[in-house]
Structures are given as C-alpha cells and as structure tokens.
C-alpha cells in the first residue's frame, strides 16, 4: 500500500480526534488538574471535602463548588470584591497580591484556614498563616467555628490597608534557598536540603512517601495533621 502525504495528514487528524473523543467518553481526558479536594477519611467529618487539600491553582469558583461558600463571601473576605471577574481569581495570586504582612503570610493556606472556620471543619493552619480583618467580620456573622477558634484567628488577623502597602513584599522570594517547608514541598526536597530519610521517618513515625510526593499530600493520605509534622521538620532544617 502506497501512502501519499495527504493520506498521512488526514489519518493523523482522524487518529487524534478519535483518540481524544474516546478518552473523553472514558472520562480520562483532562487538561487541568482535578478541582475536587480529597475528603476526610475518618472521624465525624468522614466523606466531606477537606480544606487542607485546597491548592493554589483553585479559583474562587472552584472553592465555591467544593465547599458551597458564595464567591462574593470569599472575595469579600480577601478584599477582592472590586475585581473584575472575581470567580476566576486563582488563590496562588494571593502570595503576589498580599504576601508577607507584619511577618504573617496571606497565601493559599489563608484560604484553607478561612474555609475551615467558615464551615466549622477541623484544620490546623500552618504557622504564620493569617486572615485579613474583613474575613474575621464575615466569620463572626456567618462562620461555624467555635468562639475560641474565632478569637485566635482575630488575634492574628492583619488589616487590609497594611496588606496593600506590602504588595511587593514577596518579590524574589526563593523558597529553595530559604529551606522552608510549604504545602508543596516534596520528600525529595527535604533530602536535597540535607535531611536523612531516617530523620524524616522518625518524625512521621512511619515509612516516608515516594520522593516525588509532597509531604502534605502524604500526611492527608495517611490521616496525619500536616502541621504536627511540619514544625519538627522545619526545626530540624533550621538546625542543620
């Protein structure tokens, strides 16, 4: 059988369209990461979406879909109501917009913290994570957290004005050099920074995950609270 250029070109198109359609029919085709957070595996909230798995790539709409909090509430909590098209703002932009304010961080973890308090779900925020003052007023009116949790959040809250002044605070922020454990830090990075596998496993009290897995994902999958692991690991790194 002789193949002409045209036949080859058309065949490629058919193969490509067919392949994509089949994978769509099989529900495998995805050009973006899944926006369904992991669920709590046990306890009172088993089966509910876990705010600990909110990622920087989530938009306000994604958080709304996963946790049923109105987009207006979410944007108001972070002083972004005036933005055009607020539903599509991605949480990872928080680091750029706010960054470190008064030594506290307004970033992806702030959204996890806010959602958890709003819905009354168990979550321990990373150390240094803060909320903005408008978020506290919203929580006071609509949140499902305990009074104790609210007063702790209020104590740490930062004002929107200070946040705006510090807009460029995180520029040139290089987290490899800082050796700072964040939600996306992988086991391989811990080893690269100089921790041994044994050190890490001692803190986890179980065998470590694959090198390419993030410590936070590992904790969520194994029902460990990330912050209880993060702090001792950070301490080890600081003392290296």
């Amino acid at each position: 059988m002789r193949i002409k250029a045209k036949t080859a070109g058309i065949s490629f198109f058919i193969l490509m369209l067919g392949g994509i359609l089949i994978s769509m029919a099989a529900d495998y085709w995805a050009t973006e990461g899944s926006k369904d957070p992991l669920k709590y595996t046990d306890g009172e909230f088993a089966g509910e979406n876990n705010p600990a798995d909110i990622r920087g790539s989530y938009s306000m709409d994604d958080v709304h879909n996963a946790f049923d909090i109105p987009v207006e509430t979410l944007t108001a909590a972070f002083g972004l109501s005036h933005e055009e098209n607020p539903g599509s703002i991605q949480i990872k932009l928080f680091e750029e917009i706010f960054g470190i304010v008064d030594g506290k961080e307004i970033g992806t973890d702030s959204m996890r913290y806010f959602v958890a308090l709003y819905k009354g779900l168990p979550y321990v925020a990373e150390e240094g994570t803060a909320l903005l003052k408008p978020a506290i007023s919203i929580l006071r009116k609509e949140g499902s957290m305990t009074d104790e949790e609210l007063s702790l959040a209020a104590e740490n809250a930062v004002s929107l004005e200070t946040a705006e002044i510090n807009e460029t605070a995180t520029e040139d922020h290089d987290d490899t050099v800082l050796m700072e454990i964040k939600g996306k830090t992988m086991f391989s990075e811990l080893y690269d920074w100089g921790l041994s596998k044994e050190d890490v496993e001692k803190i986890l009290s179980m065998p470590a995950g694959a090198r390419t897995m993030s410590v936070r994902d590992f904790c969520i999958a194994n029902g460990i609270e990330f912050s209880t692991v993060k702090e001792p690991l950070q301490e080890l790194l600081d003392n290296l």
């Binding site: 193969l15 392949g19 390419t212 897995m213």
Partner: peptide, 30 residues
C-alpha cells in the same frame, strides 16, 4: 511508581502521547 503524573502535567498529555506513538508506529515520526 506513585500513580500520579509529574507536577503540572495532566491526563491529556498521556492521551496525546499514546496517539502520537500510534501514529509513529504506522507512519514514523509524523
């Protein structure tokens, strides 16, 4: 090994990889 794709890569890449491999098997590196 971990059941997950490399960071920032999505399932569509795997589908396209299979399609391109199939086409290469028939026509070479089209």
């Amino acid at each position: 090994t971990t059941g997950s794709l490399v960071k920032m890569i999505h399932e569509s890449s795997v589908v396209l990889m299979i399609i391109v491999f199939l086409s290469a098997l028939i026509f070479g590196p089209l």
